[in-house]
């Protein structure tokens, strides 16, 4: 489902965010990406959703060569994937309901289907009461759940999430994990999740890929957090 070959990414300021990364993630897998701040986790996510282009190497997601997409084709590619952004990226002038609905409108679903699905999703991320609120009226945790809701609304084949539990208390984090596991299990959605949360990684053990200074330093099938030294 996801294949990265010899991928390197450096930014214009000369920072080498990723170096020679080789990864293969199969359909239906649930994978953690861990690593200290600045190790390149978000950069990896941005390469997967087409926001950044690798300097060398290839990024393939769901059979699409993401690094070579034309500018105007990028949004169409994104309809196949769901992304939970670290900075939420909710449309400030739309309500939570409208934000989730928007992601379904652009792919051309009809009104009735959209309404039904948005209600379903809001229920799933426990935000039904906040449907009419605007993003700025919500707490960080609530906004995070709204982005998760939006990302899964169109039942994507791949869900990539940049620290989706970063702003949540442990209880809510577990709730979100339960939700992600359910999506992974029931819809066979491939999930790539960046996280800092050692507790979570140890509790819900999954394949874990560790980054450090842009290198993949570990890829452990059985999971568990790796102490950095």
């Amino acid at each position: 489902m996801i294949r990265m070959e010899n991928v390197s990414k450096s930014y214009k300021n000369g920072v080498h965010a990723l170096r020679d990364v080789n990864l293969y993630i199969g359909e239906g897998e649930f994978v953690y990406i861990i690593g200290p701040t600045g190790s390149g986790k978000s950069t990896l996510i941005k390469l997967l959703d087409g926001e950044e282009i690798p300097n060398t190497g290839e990024v393939h997601v769901a059979g699409i060569d993401v690094g070579r997409l034309k500018h105007k084709k990028v949004p169409i590619y994104r309809r196949n994937i769901g992304v939970v952004f670290q900075d939420f990226r909710l449309l400030p002038s739309l309500t939570i309901f409208e934000n989730i609905a928007f992601a379904l409108e652009v792919i051309g679903l009809d009104k009735v289907t959209i309404r039904r699905r948005v209600r379903e999703v809001l229920e799933l991320v426990s935000l039904s009461e906040k449907a009419r609120s605007f993003p700025h009226e919500l707490s960080g945790g609530q906004q995070q759940r709204a982005t998760i809701g939006r990302a899964i609304a169109n039942r994507p084949k791949v869900l990539i999430a940049d620290e989706p539990t970063g702003n949540l208390d442990p209880e809510k984090s577990m709730e979100i994990m339960g939700l992600l596991e359910k999506i992974n299990r029931e819809q066979r959605t491939t999930i790539v999740m960046v996280t800092h949360d050692a507790q979570l990684v140890n509790r819900y053990k999954k394949r874990t890929i560790a980054l450090e200074e842009g290198y993949v330093v570990a890829d452990i099938q059985k999971g568990g957090y790796i102490a950095h030294d």
Binding site: D49, E51, K72, V74, P75, I76, R78, R79, V83, F85, R89, L90, L91, P92, S93, F102, A103, V106, I107, R150, N154
Partner: peptide
Amino acid sequence: NQEIAIMRNVGATNHY
């Protein structure tokens, strides 16, 4: 411009 970027993020074409 943030809004425009977000629209692209969730799959809206330039035309849309």
